Amino acid sequence: MHSIFEAVIIGIVEGLTEFLPVSSTGHMILAQSLLNTQNDEVMKTFDFVIQLGAIMAVVIIYWKRILSLFGLVKRKSESARGKKLNLLHILIGILPAGVIGLSVNKIVDEKLFNSATVLIGLVLGGILMIIAEKKKEKPSVTVMDDMTYRQAFYIGLWQLVSIWPGFSRSGSTIAGGMLSGVSRAASADFTFIMAIPIMFGASGVYFLKNYHALSTNDLPFFAVGFIVAFIVALLAVVSFIKFVQKMKLTYFAYYRFALAIVFALYLYLS
């Protein structure tokens, strides 16, 4: 049985890292290695459930834009040409991860949820971010409303690499958006909104697949982790989103490299 202490620590880690391009999943796996938690089906399901708690903070911040996608709220376009992001952009963006992610999630669960693969993902994801920042052409799209369907699909394709733990969903899609001609700020906005259906879907799939391994004794563990992740994420989300929109991905890449080196030494020496 997992402890409430583990739920609090991992919930804090998730809440702080979900909105940064540093891989929240990778950080949770590394935190669990430090805590010596049992890497079982309960913990893997827990990881996805508390990510859903953090994503709820995005729902609160972007609630008007989300409702506008369904035509429930009128919103003034940020595009100089009067265009608006619509639901089809989101559906196109989540399609690649939704289709391919479901087909490979068993392999990911069994082979990739460990510290060694996370360290590889941290390094490779950091390299991708540096490449994106080195692109010299000015972005053709500076606000999310001006994104084309093709760009939404390209960003969705880049999200596929985040299936590898440590790559980071936000890091991959923001970098992919920049390589597709979308500004860092617009890519970040689209990334956070696109994460909502992705995480709801992933959490649902994991719960349905592993609910038989859960018991009523696990409910406090899940509830505490979910609530902690939600509260921490809600406190951090506004400043972190603005931070990610403005700060170059290169600095996050350097952090990822440093974290990979520190944990590689820790794993080698322990």
Rank of each mutant, 00 (worst) to 15 (best):
H2D: 09
G11L: 09
I12M: 14
E14W: 07
E14N: 07
L16S: 05
T17E: 06
E18K: 02
V22E: 06
T25Q: 08
G26E: 11
H27I: 01
I29E: 01
I29T: 03
N36F: 08
N36G: 10
E41L: 08
M43S: 08
K44G: 01
D47S: 05
F48W: 01
F48V: 01
L52R: 00
A57Q: 02
V58D: 04
K64F: 01
R65G: 03
R65N: 09
L69T: 00
F70N: 00
G71W: 12
G71S: 03
G71E: 10
V73I: 08
R75V: 15
S77H: 11
E78N: 12
E78D: 15
S79Y: 10
K83A: 11
H89G: 06
I94G: 02
D109S: 14
K111I: 14
L112T: 04
N114R: 03
A116W: 14
A116M: 13
L122W: 15
L122G: 10
L124C: 13
L124M: 15
G126I: 13
G126H: 08
I127S: 13
I131G: 09
K135L: 09
E137T: 05
E137Q: 08
S140W: 03
V143K: 13
M144N: 01
M147G: 05
Q151H: 06
F153S: 05
Y154K: 11
I155Q: 11
I155T: 06
G156R: 02
L157A: 06
Q159T: 00
Q159I: 00
L160G: 02
V161A: 14
I163M: 15
W164A: 04
P165C: 05
S172M: 12
G176H: 04
S187A: 15
S187W: 07
T191P: 07
F192I: 01
F192W: 12
I198H: 03
M199D: 02
F200S: 02
S203H: 08
S203C: 13
F207H: 03
K209W: 04
K209L: 06
K209F: 01
Y211A: 06
F221V: 00
F222C: 06
G225L: 09
F226K: 03
A229K: 03
F230D: 03
I231Q: 09
I231G: 05
A233I: 01
L235Y: 00
L235E: 05
V238M: 12
F243E: 09
F243H: 06
K248H: 10
K248E: 15
K248D: 14
T250V: 08
F252L: 03
R256Q: 08
R256C: 11
A260T: 03
F263D: 07
L267S: 04
L267Q: 14
Y268E: 10
S270Y: 12
